[in-house]
Design a protein around this nucleic acid. Structure first.
Length: 238
DNA sequence: ATCGTGGAGCGTATTACTTCA
DNA sequence: GGTGAAGTAATACGCTCCACG
């Protein structure tokens, strides 16, 4: 970069530079010459310790290097500008690297989310199927007149530990359970929450739409997917 | 105390020139 | 040898700060 060209780093050359500069007219700088290697080296050393020169030091440096104080001042100005430009490039590289990392992480999370939505869909189908089975069995029981208790009474028995109902449950699976119980059981079974306690500690949506059982009834995987895919900030990524 | 002014220094954009591939 | 890109000294201009009257 700092080749020096025909001008070596000798003091004689530096002096010649100075002479050439002095002969320049203000408008024409045809004889503009690069500073010598030695001059540049000295300027760089000073710049490393202080990017701005005190007036006294500027005069001293100019004397030592055989330059005009104005030249030293301009060199420092340009040097600061170059440094700033390089710094911007460095900052940009860092930002770009961070961006790429985040983009990659986002892609992973997006896939994970899609997988969860699919699981949720299957869960809802399972739920729907069990609900149909429940209606079928209830109808059967009523027809056979085996038990005149209402569903609510059965549920009450269940919670109070009535063995006859428990037996019935074991025979009919989710048949006589309320929807909420069904969902709790399915949820626990499907996600194996008691086996993977970490899942319960994961970050949940602020609105509790997934965690509150009272909201499960209105939970629909399609809705969820639509909600997540409509006019959200992450639309930008898809 | 306040205001106007001029000089110095700085940042930025640009020009003019040099060097090199 | 011609040429375009990159580097760099220097200029132009606008801005801020500060001393001074």
């Amino acid at each position: 970069m700092l080749d020096g060209g025909e001008y070596s780093s000798s003091a004689a050359m530096a002096a010649e530079c100075f002479t050439s500069f002095n002969s320049l007219s203000k408008k024409s700088s045809k004889n503009k010459r690069r500073f010598s290697d030695e001059q540049i080296r000295s300027l760089e050393i000073i710049f490393e310790s202080e990017s701005k020169l005190e007036p006294r030091k500027k005069l001293q440096l100019a004397r030592e290097l055989g330059l005009q104080p104005r030249q030293v001042a301009i060199w420092f100005q340009n040097r600061r500008a170059r440094w700033k430009s390089k710094q911007l490039e460095r900052d940009y590289s860092i930002l770009r690297a961070n961006y790429n990392t985040l983009a990659s992480q986002f892609g992973t999370l997006k896939k994970e989310k899609q997988s969860l939505v699919t699981q949720l869909q299957k869960l809802n189908e399972l739920l729907e199927k069990s609900r149909e089975d429940s209606q079928c069995c209830t109808k059967e029981v009523a027809e056979n007149n085996i038990d005149s208790k209402s569903d609510n009474e059965k549920i009450k028995d269940e919670f109070e530990g009535n063995p006859s109902v428990s037996l019935e449950r074991s025979e009919h699976g989710f048949g006589v359970l309320s929807d909420d119980d069904n969902r709790s059981s399915i949820k626990a079974e499907y996600f194996r929450l008691d086996e993977e306690p970490d899942l319960q500690n994961t970050v949940e949506p602020a609105d509790d739409s997934l965690t509150s059982p009272e909201n499960w009834g209105s939970l629909d995987s399609n809705d969820l997917y639509e909600q997540s895919s409509s006019s959200q900030w992450w639309d930008f990524w898809s």
